[in-house]
Amino acid sequence: MIYYLGSVPVSVDHSFSSFLRLTFIVCLTLFSACAANKSAMPNTVRLVTDDAGRHVSLPARVDRVISLAPNLTEIVFAIGAGDRLVGRTSYCDFPPEAKAVAEVGDTLHPSLERIISLKPQVVLISTSSQLEVFTRQLQNQNIAVFVTDPHDLEGVFRSIGQIGEMLAHKEQANLLVQKLRARANAVQEAVKQKPPVRVFYQVSAEPLYTAGHDAFVTDLMHRAGAASVTADVPGAWPKYSNESALAAKPEAIILPTGGSMGTANSDVTEALRKSPAALAGRVYKINDDHLARPGPRAVDGLEEMARALHPDAFK
């Protein structure tokens, strides 16, 4: 094949028809290679259902996985299957070992060509990336796409279980879920007797965005002994009215910042500068990577929030 490709520039000089013939031969070779690949694929497949309700057929043994979301990359590494990961997004920066894995673009704009060239058997995606069209293209390439859509901490545990099963790391996954669940239960036990703190969760200050009903972090806040003042607002990340934020009089404000956010979102929005929360100094900056990524570190975020909101419960 290399011989054919290499001779193309020479043949162009001769005549166009010989170039065409060569192209034809090259194509034939490529096609037969593809056909050979397909027949070499293992016949044993299993059918699993993902969070989008799709039936995904997976090969019996999955050795090559690409993750298109940072939380999924964290899950793959946390269950000890990091060596199966052959591709990740530029946002997948944890654990540090993940950075050694090939990049395939960012969460919203992954490179289809690079994904295909990495020959994954499964691509893990998160619904928040809105990759419907992309999913179809991957399926046309005979690459299985597994969609996760956790809305709460239980959803994260489910994702861990599903990925553990997919990568034949079921025991490690179960063990991880057990540990995380124990930590989450301990937090809930500690704050159980405490009256919930009325919290405003500021996603960004200008314009003002917050966490709504469908956000994963709303469940996390609830478990941390907080009552999100925007828990009933429809949607996951609604743009919120400044005056409604002021009128809600939150007792505490959570600023997800730091981590991969850098210094973004480290100031309280102007409308809340005189809120009871700001006046009492109850503004808590918490690592955004722990709150925005529905992965194993979400339990870190849960503990950090609970300790910030109810310091006396953890003495």
């Binding site: 946002y91 969460t107 960004s204 743009k239 850098g262």
Partner: peptide, 13 residues
């Protein structure tokens, strides 16, 4: 596209 992903939503708005 070059910018921080965290700021894209607020920019489209």
């Amino acid at each position: 596209v070059l910018m921080d992903a965290t700021r894209i939503r607020s920019f489209t708005f």
